[in-house]
């Protein structure tokens, strides 16, 4: 449970996504203009890897598989998306993006009763 360095700030350009693995945990980094966000690497719909399927524009991410969308700053679902993106805490230290890794965040796919 601690802050871990993910990658240099300059590696994550706005409207792009970058995946990295820290202590065996895969995370997805995004640049939202005034800061960074770190999410689990997969889409909460059907576990597609968002580094490949995510389209980012104006801080909205769209998964090109079934077009779920989220507000990248808050992770809140937009349009047809039914679940938010989970978000790890991040901060910048000496040009590095730091991610607070307590435990791996994973989506619960077991709730199909709603």
């Amino acid at each position: 449970m601690s802050w871990k360095a993910a990658c240099p700030v300059s590696d994550v350009k706005q409207d792009t996504l970058k995946e990295c693995t820290i202590d065996g945990i895969e995370i997805l980094l995004a640049n939202v203009g005034d800061g960074f966000r770190a999410y689990p690497p997969v889409c909460p719909h059907m576990e597609q890897y968002l580094e490949g399927s995510g389209i980012c524009a104006n801080n909205v991410m769209t998964c090109d598989r079934h077009l779920w969308q989220w507000d990248m700053k808050t992770g809140e679902p937009l349009g047809p998306a039914e679940k938010p993106l989970l978000i790890y805490q991040t901060k910048e230290v000496n040009g590095q993006i730091m991610v607070f890794l307590d435990e791996e965040l994973e989506y619960d796919f077991d709730d199909d009763d709603d």
Partner: peptide, 19 residues
Amino acid sequence: VDALIRPLILNSKIPVHRV
């Protein structure tokens, strides 16, 4: 199909349930 989905959604602002 990939080349079309991106501009359709991003530029034309087609609601995603209309694709």
